[in-house]
Design a protein around this nucleic acid. Structure first.
Lengths: 204, 204
DNA sequence: CTAGGATGTGACCGGTCGGTACGGGGCGTC
DNA sequence: GACGCCCCGTACCGACCGGTCACATCCTAG
């Protein structure tokens, strides 16, 4: 961190201080593991080594803290997505397969609790909830990105194939929570391959 | 209501009286629509036109009331399943397709909130929760039934096909909550057909 | 050294959570 | 009419919910 210019040291809004970061990190772990509704703000601040006013200075409500947590989850998911894309440049089929592979790989490990975004949408069905909005936006964008990929493959019905893959992906998320390591997630990649190949051959 | 016989009117244990039934019915609707964690016992008893002691006389705790609600959901799901089976005797492919069709049909209507059993498992990740046990048992049985069907089809890899179909089914449940009527559920039947046909041809 | 702003602190708010003790009241039976 | 049985509702419990207050403390810029 070097000194910048002599005048106007921090031009933009100050970055979040440490307490707020710890709160978000702690809340993210707790929300993911136990579900947002099951976790109280008291537990969050105690485990973050701080207190409630610090929480409410950084986040206007618990619901907005949930939204911030989900924004983080969304960013993580996109980084996985981009990583899979970067691993197979110009090969959309391998990209989506790699993404699904990574997904079911994590799903088959212990402690997996599915997709935080999907879980939150289930916990908060009310349309206006700030967290739910983040989830819905993320999933809509994912649907779009999947369509981009299936179009790039040259699939006959790219939208239908993308939706089919999305069903598989969400299926992985929930079944892994129900069945654990022996769950159907292991079948995800194979199913995705079959679906893609059938669409490429026009067998749909 | 006519008089029954003169002697020994109710020989077996008395059936649940009206209050308990109203509580279960009200709770079931509320739990499904808003999520079990979001609904308090006070709201349940008020809307059922009764009071808390009546609830706790019939159910030993809220968690057990949730379990009772999920038992009902499970029974409903099996009746849909059996209906699809009965509609196509001796044709397991048509049976499973019909079931998925019925599922996505409901999913594309308004007010759909997915599978109550899956939702509850997401809301209550703790292994010991009585409601979660009902959900897990149901889903394991569903996986078995699906395997029976794919075996009856003569699929090359019946377990893998069954798991693939289960991924689709659970995918329908969650995506319908995220996307509403325009969601990917409409692609479910087609995807299932493609998967089944590929497995029958041995293209897996 | 001083002044200001951002941060941490403990106490506290009304409301709701799941759960319970207890006392009446309807009804068929003698 | 008195009894016993079963079912129900009134009132209440301690704990915790999300959220706020006034105040102590610290860091940093000047």
């Amino acid at each position: 961190m070097s000194r910048t210019s002599t005048k106007a040291a921090p031009p933009k809004a100050a970055a979040a201080p440490k307490a707020a970061e710890r709160i978000l990190a702690t809340a993210s772990e707790l929300f993911y593991r136990e579900g947002a509704r099951a976790v109280g703000v008291d537990e969050i601040v105690v485990r973050a080594g701080t207190t409630k006013p610090s929480l409410y200075r950084a986040f206007e409500s618990k619901d907005h803290l949930i939204a911030a947590y989900l924004e983080g989850r969304s960013a993580d998911a996109w980084s996985w997505f981009e990583k899979a894309a970067a691993a197979h440049p110009g090969d959309p089929r391998a990209q989506v397969l790699d993404y699904i592979d990574a997904l079911s790989g994590r799903a088959l490990k212990g402690g997996y609790r599915g997709c935080g975004l999907s879980n939150a949408a289930i916990e908060y069905p009310e349309a206006g909830h700030p967290g739910r909005k983040v989830s819905v936006k993320h999933k809509e964008k994912l649907r779009e990105r999947l369509r981009d990929l299936t179009r790039a493959m040259g699939a006959r019905k790219p939208r239908k194939l993308a939706d089919s893959l999305l069903l598989i992906i969400e299926g992985v998320h929930v079944t892994s929570q129900l069945f654990g390591a022996e769950g159907p997630a292991a079948a995800a990649r194979g199913a995705a391959e079959t679906l893609i190949d059938a669409h490429m051959r026009g067998h749909v």
